[in-house]
Design a protein around this nucleic acid. Structure first.
Length: 869
RNA sequence: GGGCAAUUAGCUCAAUGGCUAGAGCAUCUCGAUUACACCGAGAGGGUUAUAGGUUCGAGUCCUAUAUUGCCCACCA
């Protein structure tokens, strides 16, 4: 007999098992013979750090579905990759440069910086790849991609060129979000809003040729340097006489008009708003509509420009302080009020955003001819993409409906440059080139022929390329993978990337390929700590998934990340929880250990026939197995991992380990044991691939691989209700005896002698309830009766019975049953119920009443007998 | 300001409109039993946030309310 340790030695075995899978080459779908396919292009993590629990959680879900589909006999492609993650990587790498070499990127120079950043990403990718393997993900590493790989990048840039031709991208002088630290424009979605205690300043603007003032309220007095109007609501009676008059802008001594605009809130501040078109998004809109001048007074370093007169060179906060003092000195400051207001900050570095006017590239999301947002909405509304959880549909629909043009140009160095070239108009003219003001512009993948062309220095928003990930990785349109696997089957991503990524993949996929990029869109929630806090480095509450794997094993980690969890809902993770799942893995291991020790001929059994089922227990466990298989398969198809696992766990631990295995010690039907374990291993494999594969390897001495085994067939007609009811009756009897044992504190040495009726599973009851049964008849003194619908015993317990206690408990049960019967009979008396309820429910109700009646009868008899003693 | 969720046992969470609302952890009691003490047996613990409604039937659907969390937004 082989020696098997008491626990699965995951530390020793996980890497070896992974190598076995990898070496089998079945991660690569080309090596699987099948006509059915499943493809999940995995979301690329940012290649600038390490894996965190969020990644681990997503990967676990992806791998569970991937393995499930592979066991359905499909060619499964899980395509891994990494994202260059533009701004984030640049921020991380700049910090690293500063810390390690004490230099800035400017000191390094653009080209050198780019190369160093690239090397850094490659290094991190390698590290992260090793971590991904630790989690057990069955991805095809031979196809691994990086967003800057030339082939994929070419596809992404082609899309840009095509969009340019279609008029869906344009370069425009518009107000954008500017991060002065990163030195780049940002998309709206990359801006975070934080509530902050601020001040509202009331400033008096004198009316020209008058002694009157118009008071405006602002949180940013420094922007007044660029004011070109004051606006009031046309319905606001207080200001009717001011409209059309001119004001003298304090400090700048410029004349500015009072204009009327519906968008002004009469309730807020004084009802009069200073308009700074160059530094506020709404003001910019109003400025456009009223054809106001745009005066930039804040530059890209967040300093006051020459337009700011004597304040030139001050930073924003410095200028604000000085302006407030100056206004006060000159008597223009009416008052200050405290105010909680929203401050916009850079999503990546948390620097305050300066809205300013800049020349940037934009994606037109709602063009008349080709509306990207309408196309995406169509995918969602038509159900071409199924969304899990379903309510995220609503969120997406609402977001798309309000979507503004998307700024895609960044002034950072790390990322692909725009495929756009300019040259002075005076030089040679080309037919292909469009003339744009003083410059010629050429948009195309290659630098045009001729001299003097200079490439646009802008780099792409990282989401521009990653939003094309599902097809750029597959070599769209002509690549073999694109033809085989596109549209992909699944996209599984964190709900925090809903807008950044998921929404944009729908837009870009629909535009470029005319298809949905994926048929199913599944969101995971955030993993939080046991107190519900977000994991973060600054809080120091981070859990490294690798530490967990070392301590509890990858299977335990996987279970703890997906069990008891609903899609899109945040979840909490604690060590205690993981420990619980580690215990389950040990349980699974020990079931295997028992099997091999119980019978030296033990083997996993693929199929059995009815003849092999000898006893009630055999029939019952196979019945349960079939029901479990059917339910688990259905749950998996519904993408309900949590319920699938819950169902499986109940079957494995409660039904199989606690009942069937115990009974097997007596009945020894090893064939059934081998049959059920075989199925348990297969059903668990997607969730806990390591331990199940290890058991399978040991059972087959390496001749077969569980990863490639067939998922157990979903039986059509699988439930034998009679068997299930009968076994449940036996369980009930045993439970009742156990209950008595517990309440009378009967020592296990002091077995209860029971006098049983015939046809009772004597040995099973003796073993599981720890009683000694003598078949006989007659009720003796001190006897207590236990009975179920089908079985009855009299127990001759050593201690005297607490009559009162027994009677109370029986009476309680009688009342309970009577209530239930009354309730169910009430239902049957209700004409509406009889007319309205489906047949099965009606039948079930009737059956239930019968059961309750039987039980009631038993209780009444017990009571009678008890009193007779 | 708008939207989305959540609210179920001490804690973390399940539950297809239909069986006496279930698990795990924690608590209490018992147990060295020829797989597992990372185990087994038993027990206690619930007005499913509140108030209405729809329905033969509601934890589940609808409407309010409360609390919490998240997202979006141009309150200067």
């Amino acid at each position: 007999m082989r020696e098997i340790s008491k626990q699965f030695d995951f530390k020793e075995r996980e890497d070896a098992i992974y190598k076995l899978w990898e070496g089998s080459s079945f991660f690569n779908p080309d090596n699987i013979k099948s006509t059915k396919k499943y493809c999940n292009v995995l979301p690329p993590p940012n290649a600038n750090g390490e894996l965190h629990l969020g990644h681990a959680s997503g990967y676990t879900v992806m791998d569970i579905f991937g393995r499930f589909e592979r066991m359905q006999g499909k060619k499964v492609l899980l395509l891994p990759g990494k994202d260059h993650a533009g701004i984030q990587t640049q921020v991380v790498f700049e910090r690293k440069l500063k810390a390690e070499q004490g230099i800035s990127r400017h000191e390094m120079g653009r080209e050198k910086f780019y190369q160093a950043c690239y090397d850094f990403c490659m290094d991190r990718s390698q590290y992260m790849r090793a971590q991904e393997k630790k989690i057990g993900i069955s991805a095809d590493w031979s196809r691994e991609k990086f967003t800057l790989d030339p082939a994929g990048l070419k596809i992404a840039l082609e899309t840009f060129v095509q969009m340019y031709k279609d008029g869906l991208v344009y370069k425009g002088h518009r107000i954008i979000n500017w991060c002065s630290r990163c030195g780049t424009a940002l998309a709206d979605v990359e801006v975070e809003h934080k509530e902050q205690a601020g001040k509202l300043y009331y400033i008096k603007y004198p009316v020209k040729d008058s002694k009157e003032f118009l008071t405006v309220a602002t949180t940013r007095p420094e922007t007044m340097l660029g004011d070109t109007a004051v606006a009031v609501n046309p319905k606001d009676k207080r200001f009717l006489s001011f409209i059309g008059q001119n004001l003298i802008l304090p400090l700048q001594n410029r004349e500015i008009p009072v204009i009327a605009d519906r968008r002004i809130d009469m309730e807020f501040g004084t009802g009069a708003v200073k308009i700074t078109p160059a530094h506020d998004p709404l003001d910019w809109q109003i400025g456009k509509d009223h054809k106001l001048e745009e005066i930039s007074v804040i530059d890209e370093k967040a300093k006051i420009t020459a337009n700011g007169g004597e304040y030139e060179g001050f930073d924003v906060l410095g200028a604000r302080a000085k302006i407030v003092v100056d206004l006060q000195t000159l008597g223009f400051l009416e008052k200050e009020e405290s105010l909680a207001n929203n401050v916009s900050v850079c999503e990546r570095c948390k620097t305050v955003i300066e809205p300013l006017i800049s020349n940037q590239w934009f994606v037109k999301v709602d063009d008349e001819k080709i509306s990207l947002k309408k196309q995406a909405l169509e995918l969602i509304k038509s159900g071409k993409v199924e969304i899990y959880p379903e309510n995220f549909k609503k969120i997406l629909i609402q977001w798309f409906s309000n979507l503004q043009d998307w700024c895609i140009s960044r002034q950072i160095w790390w990322g692909p440059q725009f495929p756009v070239w300019y040259r002075e108009k005076s030089k040679v003219e080309s037919r292909k080139s469009k003339v744009n003001g003083e410059q010629e512009i050429y948009v195309g993948l290659e630098k045009p022929k001729g001299d003097g062309w200079v490439q646009d220095e802008n780099t792409f928003d990282t989401w521009f390329s990653s939003s094309q990930w599902p097809y750029s990785t597959l070599g769209y349109p002509n690549g073999k993978d694109a033809k085989n696997f596109y549209p992909t089957d699944a996209m599984i991503t964190g709900r925090d990337l809903l807008f950044f990524w998921a929404a944009r993949m729908l837009m870009m996929g629909s535009y470029r390929t005319d298809k949905t990029p994926f048929k199913n869109l599944y969101f995971t929630g955030l993993v939080r700590d046991k107190d519900g806090q977000k994991f973060s480095k600054s809080k120091g509450n981070g859990i490294d998934p690798m530490d967990i794997i070392n301590k509890f094993g990858a299977d335990a980690l996987r279970l703890s990340l997906v069990m008891d969890i609903a899609p899109g809902q945040d979840s909490r993770l604690s060590e205690e929880k993981i420990e619980g799942f580690r215990n389950f893995v040990t349980k699974l291991w020990n079931i295997f250990r028992y099997c091999t020790q119980a019978d030296e001929n033990f083997a996993l059994v693929e199929k059995i026939s009815k003849k092999d089922l000898k006893t009630l227990s055999d029939n019952w466990i196979v019945c349960e197995l079939e029901e479990t298989t059917r339910n688990v398969t259905e749950f998996m198809k519904d993408k309900n991992i949590s319920l699938a696992q819950d169902t499986l766990r109940k079957f494995t631990w409660d039904s199989f380990a606690d009942w069937y295995v115990e009974i097997h010690k007596l009945e020894k039907n090893t064939k059934v044991l081998g049959y059920v374990l075989d199925k348990i291993l297969k059903l668990w494999h997607p969730f806990t691939p390591f331990v199940t594969e290890e058991i399978y390897q040991q059972m087959f001495d390496g001749r077969k691989m569980l990863m490639m085994a067939q998922w157990p067939k979903n039986p059509k007609k699988c439930i034998d209700t009679k068997v299930q009811i009968d076994f449940a009756d036996l369980q009930e009897l045993i439970a009742k005896i156990r209950n008595i044992r517990s309440s009378y504190h009967i020592d296990p040495v002091n077995l209860i002698e029971g006098f049983g009726k015939k046809k009772i599973e004597k040995e099973i009851i003796e073993r599981l309830a720890r009683v000694k049964i003598e078949t006989g008849k007659g009720v003796k003194a001190k006897m207590i009766q236990v009975a179920t619908r089908k079985r009855a015993l009299q127990l001759n317990i050593a201690k005297s019975i607490d009559m009162e206690k027994e009677l109370i408990s029986i009476d309680k049960e009688i009342v309970n049953l009577e209530n239930l019967i009354a309730k169910n009979e009430g239902m049957l008396k209700n004409k509406n119920f009889v007319a309205g309820a489906p047949k099965e429910i009606l039948e079930a109700t009737k059956t239930r009443i019968g059961e309750y009646m039987d039980k009631l009868q038993i209780q009444k008899e017990l009571k009678k007998n008890l009193k007779a003693i």
